[in-house]
Amino acid sequence: MSDTTAYHGATATPHEPGFGDYVQLLKPRVMSLVVFTALVGLLVAPVALHPVEAFAAILFVALGAGASGALNMWWDADIDAVMQRTARRPVPAGKVQAGEALAVGLALSGISVVMLGLATNLMAAALLAFTIFFYAVVYSMWLKRTTPQNIVIGGAAGAFPPMIGWVCATGSVSVEACLMFGLIFMWTPPHFWALALFMKEDYHKAGVPMLTVTHGRQATRLHILVYTLLLVPVALGAALTSIGGPLTLAVAVALNVWFVIGAWRIWTRDETVAEADRYAAEKAFFRFSLLYLFLHFAAFLVEAALKSAGIGGW
């Protein structure tokens, strides 16, 4: 229909969403991390899936993560609108209505869990369902607005994908899957607290009880150091299991030394020094934290490839 006059009536909403707006509801950047870690979990497992099953498994894990992102955007629309970092998300920007985000989130949750169960096994589907519940209900609805430990406990939701990938292939949870979970779980607090240090107005304005708001910035710096130190044995432990090897251990040692040095630098600074160089150390730590996680999981993947060629692993 080429005549547009009919569309200016009551049927058209002022901000009718395009397909891209719905894609943005699924937090594609978070999804890319989920796809990568779940893929590594699946590929390093001792049981090989058929490529079609593996593709379907990763797709539905990613879809489940997207669904929980949409549910999070529905619930958090009010605080997303206040924070500079999240104000352009589809719901606070007025591109998608909150009810639509809820419908998309619920529909995709159901589809992803059922399809993952059919494509792989019930345990993987149950874990995915629990992950969506944990992120949408436990983290978004409960912890995020009530406790400064929100990031610590809520980080579990982001830590499940490699475990789900492993369970898709093997049908059970093992120490390797738990250590991959632990790696992301322990990495999440320092990563987000570094962000909170230099995005300082956002969480304060939104009234989100981040550690920086409730316990102060110096306490946050100490927490970053403590959690980074606690992360070290988990990362090295993972490298010593069947998914690791000499290469993984070398990468883990190098990454953790660098990460601890970064956390130490943050702890020894105060706000005056940080403001003087516009939070250079905190921003560098945050950027490196992304590389840290990527390289750790990339090392697992390379080690698995080397092992299949007969030259990697323990």
């Binding site: 080429s2 005549d3 547009t4 006059t5 569309y7 058209a12 009718e16 969403p17 395009g18 397909f19 891209g20 719905y22 894609v23």
Partner: peptide, 18 residues
């Protein structure tokens, strides 16, 4: 024939994507 409205483009992208 009038030029295509932005609304049409968004609806088309939604329908095509779905």
């Amino acid at each position: 024939f009038r030029p295509e409205h932005d609304l049409h483009k968004r609806r088309f992208s939604r329908n095509l994507g779905l």
